[in-house]
């Protein structure tokens, strides 16, 4: 069953009397029980897109067009009050990037969990019992509920944030860079915890990260964003074994892989375009070694195989691109 359905969503920010077009015409679905990874580099619009689902955009940001349908209801049109009452935490909860900032430093973690449960008039079980259960669920000794956030380690704080996200047992969780800034060991722990919870509860997850390795670790389906647009979408295997967009191919060859140290990594020349005045046509064309005159026409999202799509005019040449993309000399600055 499709839980979440985004259609042609565009989002912009007003910055100093100009409009920054952070997200441009993005559509995707989230099926019940799947983990979707959204990857892309800083400024590609991935966090903006995720925030728009729960109306978490800052005051200068707005959804210009498109629908964000949750079980048949358009979240864009919903008032903030109704969203708070019926969607946030109950239906969709949010795991923020920085656990230290997501927790209030002057309340104990127990009090913060209790508050979440109370506000949403949770009354199935006594609240204290439920707090203990949630902490146990994420691997924290319930006795620690009297601790303040600063008394916990970074990994433990992130676990508390996950416990809060689970508090009302929502069908969907959005996690924005849940492991960025955490140590490798703790990162592994948190990813294992997320996978375990997802499997046990059949939860739908939207995982936003710049780290392609993290996505590879736990996602079922991957969306790749570049300069505000969705440029490739497919299963994890399709994206990693058969990337079709030159940007995805470039990224794949820019990542060091353990044990393959003789491979020279490629550098994608240039930088992503300025989104105040985005270029016409393909937004990757100035950095793409395979671009032609045709690329000044905006490419459609072409299907390369069932469900695997890429926003490129030349998806039929992907095998050739994949081969050439491994050679660092291919990626020379053409400007």
């Amino acid at each position: 069953m499709t839980l979440l359905e985004l259609t042609d969503v565009s989002i912009s920010y007003s910055v100093d009397a100009t409009e920054l077009h952070a997200v441009d015409n993005v559509s995707f679905d989230a099926e019940e029980g799947e983990i979707i990874g959204i990857v892309g580099e800083s400024g590609c619009g991935k966090t903006t897109l995720a925030k728009s689902i729960l109306q978490l955009l800052p005051p200068n940001g707005r959804v210009d067009q498109g629908e964000i349908m949750w079980k048949g209801e358009d979240l864009v049109q919903l008032s903030r009050k109704d969203l708070n009452k019926s969607i946030r935490w109950k239906e969709i909860s949010w795991i923020a990037q920085s656990a230290m900032n997501a927790l209030d430093p002057v309340y104990t973690i127990g009090a913060q969990l209790r508050e979440t449960l109370k506000i949403h008039s949770y009354d199935e079980k006594p609240i204290d019992e439920q707090v203990d259960y949630l902490l146990k669920r994420v691997g924290i000794d319930p006795g620690r509920k009297r601790n303040y956030p600063h008394e916990l380690s970074g990994g433990q704080r992130q676990r508390v944030v996950i416990a809060m996200a689970l508090a009302l047992d929502p069908p969907m969780i959005i996690a924005d860079e849940p492991t960025t800034g955490l140590d490798v060991g703790i990162q592994k722990e948190i990813l294992d915890l997320i996978t375990e919870i997802q499997t046990n509860r059949g939860m739908t997850m939207l995982l936003i990260t710049h780290d392609i390795n993290v996505v590879a670790e736990i996602a079922d389906r991957v969306l790749v964003m570049y300069a505000g647009q969705l440029i490739e979408q497919g299963t994890k295997q399709e994206i990693f074994d058969d990337p079709s967009h030159p940007y995805t191919i470039g990224l794949q060859n820019a990542f060091p892989r353990l044990g393959q140290r003789s491979r020279t990594l490629v550098t994608i020349p240039g930088a992503p375009p300025n989104l105040v005045d985005p270029p016409s046509g393909c937004r990757f064309k100035t950095r793409c070694p395979f671009s032609t005159d045709e690329c000044s026409i905006d490419p459609p999202l072409e299907t390369t195989s069932n469900g695997h799509v890429a926003k490129c005019h030349y998806t039929e040449k992907k095998d050739e691109f994949q081969e050439m993309g491994q050679i660092p000399g291919t990626w020379v600055d053409r400007r």
Binding site: V184, K188, N213, L258
Partner: peptide
């Protein structure tokens, strides 16, 4: 060994052992 196995690696062909690893 533990540190290496905690590295997420999309191109790993063999199944990794599940390791527990936390704070130092």
């Amino acid at each position: 060994d533990l540190l290496l196995s905690a590295m997420p690696n999309p191109y790993l062909t063999v199944e990794r052992e599940d390791v527990a690893m936390g704070d130092v």
